[in-house]
């Protein structure tokens, strides 16, 4: 078996991707920023920074604090709003020839549906479809009421179903780990009709300056990402894979091809690299270079052949 025999394509519900290496929303700007470091065309997919219906200034600084093997952030969905995205950013992304999944966040179900409708419309009116799908950010811990859809299974299912009905594009539901049962949330997103479930978003955390008796983050609480959360993410992916047949996109501290393979074995059909883009902007290229050899080492011909192959010996 040689590298040339390896098929990197993956299918997640209605969403087909050329390879399973994607970049996570909020860690890759709007892709334009990375042109000097990354051959963007090689990526399996790009999820730009989350957009909201109206512009948002975001949270006050400090917005990020480094912790042991991790990064706490409370950016607060700083973005210029849906219309600016459609006018200034989407045309650039559409030209790349890479699957683009727009990440959206609404304050309520109506806003989510409006965003999904407007983006689907904008995606198709330009002639060639500029979006490959929509990722529902129902898990940002840094905006008030941002996580309700990610913590209440009934609301989650309704929201996913409503967005699915409002858009012809494949729908990815991005879940938060800050729940008692990730399985309940995965089943809810699946029941709502999600093409794929992406997990995990950041783990809620905080950092304290004890001498000043002050929180370090301007917003007090923030979301933890980076290698520190990888074991939590692996656990969530594995549990969700047991709970649902819906395709899973693994996220959380992935920084190397070994990390990617661990997520595939746990049950993820694709992965998103996030925080690593900040400290190794070439990480996606390094992983893509190494992936065929890793799959060959696993003795498989495609990514799908290794997905969910974890063997747990019953006690």
């Amino acid at each position: 078996m040689t590298r040339a025999d390896i098929d990197l394509q993956v299918q997640l519900g209605r969403l087909q991707l050329p390879n399973p290496i994607l970049v996570a929303s909020g860690t890759f700007g709007y892709a334009r920023e990375m042109e000097a470091f990354v051959d963007l065309k090689r990526l399996g997919g790009i999820i730009p920074k989350t957009i909201t219906k109206e512009p948002r200034k975001g949270n006050p600084p400090l917005r990020t604090v480094e912790t042991a093997a991790g990064l706490l952030n409370s950016i607060g969905l700083d973005n210029d709003g849906m219309e600016q995205f459609i006018v200034h950013i989407l045309p650039y992304l559409a030209e790349l020839g890479v699957p683009i999944l727009a990440s959206i966040a609404g304050r309520n179900q109506t806003e989510f549906v409006e965003l999904a409708e407007r983006l689907s419309h904008a995606s198709t009116t330009s002639g060639q479809a500029s979006l490959a799908g929509i990722e529902l950010n129902i898990s940002c811990p840094n905006v008030s009421h941002g996580v309700d859809f990610g913590t209440d299974p009934i609301q989650c299912e309704r929201l996913v179903a409503a967005c699915r009905a409002a858009s012809a594009l494949p729908i990815v539901a991005k879940l938060t780990p800050n729940v008692t049962s990730i399985c309940d949330m995965a089943r809810a997103a699946s029941a709502g009709g999600a093409d794929a479930i992406a997990l995990i978003n950041t783990c809620l955390g905080m950092a304290i300056d004890w001498r000043g008796r002050r929180p370090r983050l301007g917003n007090v609480l923030g979301g933890l990402s980076g290698p520190a959360i990888k074991p939590i993410a692996l656990r969530c992916v594995w549990q969700a894979a047991q709970a649902t047949k819906t395709a899973i996109i693994g996220i959380g501290g992935i920084a190397s091809v070994d990390d990617c393979m661990e997520f595939f074995v746990a049950g993820a059909s694709a992965v998103q690299l996030g925080t690593v883009n900040f400290y190794n902007p070439r990480a996606t290229m390094d992983v893509l270079d190494a992936l065929p050899d890793a799959l060959a080492e696993a003795g498989v011909l495609s990514v799908a052949d290794v997905v969910g192959t974890l063997q747990v010996i019953p006690s």
Binding site: G26, G29, E33, M34, F37, K49, P61, E66, I75, F278
Partner: peptide, 15 residues
Amino acid sequence: ETPMACGIGLCFSCV
């Protein structure tokens, strides 16, 4: 000398 996580424009920390 604003604290930065990435320096490239990805993270929106150094606002």
